[in-house]
Design a protein around this nucleic acid. Structure first.
Lengths: 100, 100
DNA sequence: CGGCTCCGTTAGTGGCAACTTACCGTTCGT
DNA sequence: ACGAACGGTAAGTTGCCACTAACGGAGCCG
C-alpha cells in the first residue's frame, strides 16, 4: 500500500487518473513521461493494493482510481493517529510516575 | 512525505516509536534489526518531512513521532479523497452527455 | 483471413538508496 | 582532564526496482 505510493511516477499516474478521469493505458503513456510498458507495470502494482481498477473496453483497458484503496489508507491513518496519541499519553503518565 | 513512508524499515521505526513511546537512537538500534548509523539516516529522513522530532537529553537524542506530520498526511489524503469523488462525478456527467 | 492497434509480459540493464564499516565531534562521569 | 558512551557523518558496496527494448496475444476493420 504505502510501498505503492512510495514511487513518484506512480503518484503521477494516480494524479493523472484523478484529475483527468478514467482513461486507457496508451493515453496515460502520452501524459506521463514514461514508456507504455512501465505504465502497465505500475498499474499492476497499483491494482494489487486496490488503489486502481480496470475494465476492458474492446482492446483497450480503462483504468480508474478505486476509492476502496484510499479508504483503507484513511482508516489505517486514523488508527495510527489515535494510537499514537494514546501511546504518548501513556508515556507521559509513566514518565511522571517515575519522577515521583 | 510519502517517499519517507515508502521504506519498510522506516515504517518499522515509526511503529516502534509509536508503540514503545519516545526513545534514544541506541535503543532503537537494539529493537530494529539494523545498524545504528542506518537508524540515524532514517531518522534524518523522517525528521526532514516532519514525521519525527528529536530532543537532546545529555549525550543522547530522544526521538518521538510528531503529530504535525501525520496531520499533513491526513489533510492531503482528505483533499485527494474529495477531489477524486468530485472528478469522478464530473466524468460520469460528461460521459452521459456524450451518450445523448 | 490478413493487417493493424492496443495491451501485457519477459529479459536485461542502469541507477539509486539502504546498509555497513570506519571515523570524528560532543557530553557526561571520575 | 581523560576515558567512555552516544550519536551523527563519510565513503564504499550491494541489492533492488524502475525503465527500455523486444516479443506475444487478443480484439476491431478492411
Amino acid at each position: 500500500m504505502l510501498d505503492a505510493l512510495g514511487d513518484p511516477t506512480r503518484r503521477v499516474i494516480l494524479e493523472t487518473l484523478r484529475t483527468g478521469g478514467p482513461c486507457s493505458v496508451g493515453v496515460l503513456a502520452e501524459r506521463v513521461p514514461v514508456s507504455r510498458p512501465a505504465i502497465s507495470q505500475h498499474l499492476k502494482v497499483l491494482g494489487a493494493v486496490g488503489l486502481v481498477r480496470h475494465e476492458s473496453r474492446g482492446t483497450r483497458n480503462i483504468y480508474r482510481v478505486h476509492q476502496a484503496g484510499l479508504g483503507e489508507l484513511r482508516s489505517w491513518l486514523d488508527q495510527f493517529w489515535g494510537d499514537t496519541l494514546q501511546a504518548y499519553a501513556d508515556h507521559v503518565r509513566r514518565t511522571e510516575e517515575e519522577r515521583k
